[in-house]
Structures are given as structure tokens and as C-alpha cells.
Amino acid sequence: MDYHKTGIPGGSNYKVVTREYLFNKMQQQELHTFDEKVDYLANYLLTSDNFNEEQLKVLKHKISHFKSDLKKKWLKANRILDKFITANATWLQGTFEIPIVPLPQKRAGRPSKPFDELSDRNKRKKTSDLRSTVSQGVLVHAAKTSLETSGHRHASRLLSEVMKSPKRAEKYKQAYSKCLQASDTQLSPFKALSMFVEADLSRKQYEIVRNSNKKYYPCYSLIQKEKIKCYPPKSSITVTETAAEVNLQDLLNHTVTRLLTYLKENLSNLTEEQLGSLELIYKWGCDGSQQSQFKQKMQNEDSTDSNIFQSCLVPLQLKCGNKIVWQNPTPSSPRYCRPIRIRFAKETADLTNEEIEYISSKIDLLENRQFINDDGLSANVKHTYFDINNGRC
């Protein structure tokens, strides 16, 4: 044991340290509560040297008094470190006596090395008697307790976990190996885009994150390319001065394609029969809103951009019979809203009825088709729609 102060012996069989040294030793430990730190200090003093029974009895008595005084003073200071040190400066300079363990007599020959510096062969040789006379359970418990008292709480808990069953250690090893392999490979643009969207990052924020590990995070240009894949094909989009519309068949085909790409691991567990009978359920509707009118003039003087009327759909669920393959986690979130048509027009009852008839006619012309994802997995998807304006399928 290394002592902060050994100047004034309390007797020929004792060494002396200051209470301040013991308090600082306790505070240096990364433990959550004050009681845990006090218990650590007690275990540290009792296990640091090979005390005999009489010395242990004396030391335990001293530690008990020290713990009692320390807790009273700590509570009196309202658990505030600066207040505690100021109010108890004199008490902290007081001394604490620790029994001296007689040093073994030196023997002739080569000095023995510390256990940590021995080779694996010599370590096995030195612990052979211990392993042959003490059961595995006792050795594991002793190792856990030693790690706990020395401040290695995570290592102690990990040892407890891996010893719960014979296969647990193998699973931990495999998980750790996968973690090491994953850290060496770059995050795919698809997963990086997912992180980018989920965290609602700006380009500058992403660049700051990427600078921490450029080998792991792909450059922003790859994320931009991946984002383009999320849009329907340009050929399916029609834009005029007062309206923008995407072909409904192309929009649904694109939605299914993206879902099959995202769910490729789940789909690999389905049979061919199940893949041939997938059903994607949507809800769709239309609504209007007002906005500030811009000063930019339109070619048609009667047109205005002060009102917007929009029809859109939201995918709700992909299922196979009674088995749900994918469920929309936030069906009311704009994140999953897919616009069909947007117009500069004021919402009226006639306009709403007109839009419902228009979208319904588009739905009647839709065709189910076969889809193939990036892994070559083929699936047939049926589309089912729910009109939220009229409450009908």
C-alpha cells in the first residue's frame, strides 16, 4: 500500500496516514454514491495487506469509527464537498493508524517477479495448487469481489454475465468480434441517410460528426445520391405554374420498391407463397390551407398562391395474411406523407368532391405488379386504400 504520510508512528507496529489522504483516495473512485465510496475505502484498507486476525480486528474497529465520523460530518455539510472540506479542515489533518505487516525475510537467489510480469507458463505453474484445491465457483466469486473492491465494477458485472451459462461467453465473444469488424467498415450511404434524417441533421452538423471518424461515415455527396433514390422518377412528375402532380401508379411502385429494399432481411424469412400474397394498406385524403401571398405575379391574373389544396397518401401496413411484415410507427407524421397532387386553390366542398372523384378514378386504373429488390427477391404486392375523407375503402 502506498501511504500519503508515514511520518508520525502511532507505535512500532503502526503506520500513520492523514484522514485527508483517505478521503481523497475515496473521492478518486468513479462510484455513484457516497456510501459506495466509503465501502470501497473500507475494503481497500482491509484487503491491501496480509493482516493477521488480531490486526484485522483492530483495523475494523478503527474503520468503523472513521466511517461513522465521516458520514456525520458529510451529512452536516449537506453533502457539499467544498463546505465539507472548509468545515473539517482540522479534522482531515488528523491521523489514522494502520497496522504494519512484517516484511518477509529476504532469501538468497534471484528475486521473484510480480505475477503480472510472469509468462503464461509460469502463471499456470504458480496457480496450479490454487486451481487444484479450490473450486471454480469460489475462484470466480473471488475474482468478482476483487474486481468490485478495486473499482472495476463493469468488469465484475461482465464476469457475472458470462458465467451464467456455458454458451453465454461464446455469444459475448461473437458479439465483440462483430463489433470490431463493424468498426472497421464504413457505414453504408443508406444507413447514413437514415441517421441523417432521424437526427434531423443539417449538412454542417453532419460534416462535424463525420470529422470525428471519416473512415466510418461516408461523404455528404454519397448521402445526396442516396436521397435522390427516395424520390419518384422525374418522368412521373408534372409541374405547372399552379399545380404539381405525380403519377399515382409510379408513386405506389416507388413506395413498394423502397419498402422492399428497407425490409430485405424480414422478407428473406418469408416463403414464396407468402411473398406472392403481400398486401400494402394505405390511407389517403385531401385538405386545404392558407399561406401568405407572394408578390410574384402569375401568367394567369386570376390565379393566386394564397391557398393550397393537396391530396396525399400514407402507407400504413405491409402484411401477409394475418402476419404484419411492416407497421408505420407514426401514421400521422408528415415524414410518411406522400403527396399526390398539390394545387394553388381554395378549399371548398365542390373542390373536395372533385378531388375525391379524381383520385378515385386514378385508383380504379391501378395495377398490381411483381417487384424485385436489390437481392433479387421477388414479391407480388396488392394495394388496399382507405379514404379518410369518406371513411371508405
Rank of each mutant, 00 (worst) to 15 (best):
Y3E: 05
H4P: 14
I8N: 09
I8T: 09
G10H: 10
R19W: 05
L22M: 07
F34G: 03
V38M: 04
D39F: 14
Y40V: 01
L45P: 01
N50Q: 08
E53W: 10
E53S: 15
E54T: 12
Q55N: 04
K62V: 04
S64C: 09
H65R: 09
K72Q: 09
K73M: 14
W74F: 03
A77L: 04
N78C: 11
D82E: 12
W91M: 03
W91Q: 02
L92E: 00
Q93F: 10
E97I: 13
I98E: 00
I100A: 06
V101F: 08
G109Q: 04
P111F: 00
D116T: 14
S128H: 11
D129K: 13
D129T: 09
T133H: 12
L147N: 03
E148T: 11
S150P: 07
R153G: 10
V162A: 05
Q181F: 12
Q181A: 15
A182D: 08
Q186W: 07
F190V: 07
K191A: 13
F196R: 03
V197W: 14
K204M: 10
R210W: 08
Y216W: 07
Y220I: 07
K234L: 15
T238V: 13
V239I: 14
V246I: 06
L252S: 02
N253C: 11
H254T: 02
L259F: 05
L260F: 04
L263D: 03
K264Y: 08
K264S: 10
N266W: 04
N266A: 11
S268Y: 04
N269F: 15
Y282A: 03
S289V: 07
S289Q: 05
Q290R: 06
K297Q: 14
N300Q: 11
L316I: 10
K319F: 04
I324H: 13
I324E: 15
I324P: 02
T330R: 10
S332Y: 06
S332W: 04
R338Y: 13
T352P: 08
E357G: 12
I359T: 01
K362C: 14
L366N: 03
F371Y: 09
N373Y: 05
G376H: 05
L377S: 05
N390W: 08
R392W: 09
